[in-house]
């Protein structure tokens, strides 16, 4: 028996070296070997721990069959009995981040086994788990693998040795929203006044208690009379006219496009998707599967809705920064408002 602690690793189909997007539908499998990032990760444990196996699951499969995938993963964890579970890093990949986050959190909550993952701060997976799981803050793309793995390994090692982790910014993980009591040589009133003075002088200061950011939008009032309403279609699924005239990026979009659909009853072969990261076959076969113009046009003819707005708006969702998404939303919203649109259907892939 080795006295090394046992790490179980989770990766998606890509990092599991099974394949790209065409394998995103694969069911989870367990392999009792180190695969992909698990190899590098283990080397940073400096011989204190070993990766005893890797679970690989397709990103689409996990997100579309969460219960089935989780039940397989939980069963495997119970059989393999690791001391700690490591997932990812997922960088800024949304589906992978959701999988890494949900799996890690479920293991912590249900089995009381600690878990470590790594994500870019804007990954939607961060919010699924950061209160229970140590989420190492990583760069936004896999080019940051070399930066992420040593940090994830160092934190894993500390947790396994029972050492207390330092503050998030010192250790390199995303704050969990916990408060700690620490001793200070100055009393609170003095520190507060010093911060105030620094602020008045225009110098930098650092709050001891950052306020949580609540960014909720009040729901807009519902449409009263659908039969008089103008409905607009918007998508983050990357549907564009063939040839992509505005050259919208297939990932990490820098812009959006709008296309006149007045003359169309449905989206056909002259439209396609340029969105990276999902299998485009189904969308290209029938773009209405992403932007349901056919049904909306039918409802317009039947008088169920007033009319379909002149343009549909489109961009790519994958890897697109929160900053750009806000900008696109503001710009598109201003146009919709000016066009007198009464309601919007936004589809995402």
């Amino acid at each position: 028996m080795s006295d090394k602690y046992k790490v179980l690793y989770y990766v998606n189909q890509f990092f599991g070296q099974i394949g790209g997007e065409e394998k995103a539908g694969m069911e989870p499998v367990f392999k009792n070997e180190k695969i992909g990032p698990a190899v590098g990760f283990e080397s940073f444990l400096k011989g204190n721990g070993e990766v005893i196996g890797t679970i690989i699951c397709g990103d689409n499969y996990f997100n579309e069959h969460k219960n089935e995938a989780l039940s397989f993963i939980m069963k495997t964890v119970k059989e393999v009995k690791p001391d700690i579970v490591v997932t990812g890093p997922a960088f800024n990949a949304g589906r992978y981040g959701m999988a890494c986050g949900v799996i890690a959190k479920t293991i912590v909550e249900e089995l009381d086994i600690p878990a470590v993952t790594g994500m870019y701060i804007e990954n939607p997976g961060v919010d699924t788990c950061k209160d229970k799981v140590i989420v190492v803050s990583t760069p936004d793309s896999a080019a940051g693998m070399r930066k992420a793995l040593p940090v994830m390994a160092a934190i894993t090692d500390k947790l396994m040795k029972g050492e207390e982790l330092g503050l998030p910014e010192e250790e390199g993980y995303i704050p969990q929203g916990k408060r700690l009591t620490v001793f200070s040589d100055k009393r609170g009133s003095q520190r507060a006044v010093e911060m105030l003075i620094a602020r008045l002088k225009g110098e930098g200061f650092k709050t001891e208690l950052p306020m949580p950011e609540f960014d909720k939008v009040e729901p807009a009032p519902p449409i009263k009379d659908l039969s008089k309403a103008t409905i607009a279609l918007v998508t983050s699924g990357g549907i564009v006219p063939k040839g992509n005239p505005d050259r919208i990026q297939s990932a990490s979009a820098q812009k959006w496009g709008k296309y006149d659909i007045t003359a169309l009853d449905k989206l056909e072969a002259d439209y396609c998707t340029i969105h990276g990261g999902y299998d485009p076959v189904y969308a290209n076969e029938k773009p209405d599967r992403i932007v349901p113009l056919d049904i909306l046009r039918q409802y317009e003819k039947e008088g169920i809705i007033g009319k379909v707005s002149q343009y549909f708006y489109t961009t790519t969702g994958t890897g697109t920064s929160v900053g750009n998404s806000i900008k696109f939303g503001k710009e598109i919203g201003a146009e919709l408002k000016a066009d007198g649109v009464d309601g919007v259907i936004l589809t995402s892939t």
Binding site: E64, T128, V217, P219, A220, I345
Partner: peptide, 24 residues
């Protein structure tokens, strides 16, 4: 995008498969 469009007071519905992202 959903939230920024709704800020203009236009009701908007998000049709998505990973609704946990949409919720968060």
């Amino acid at each position: 995008m959903v939230k920024e469009i709704e800020r203009y007071g236009i009701p908007i519905v998000h049709m998505a498969t990973i609704i946990t992202i949409s919720q968060s």
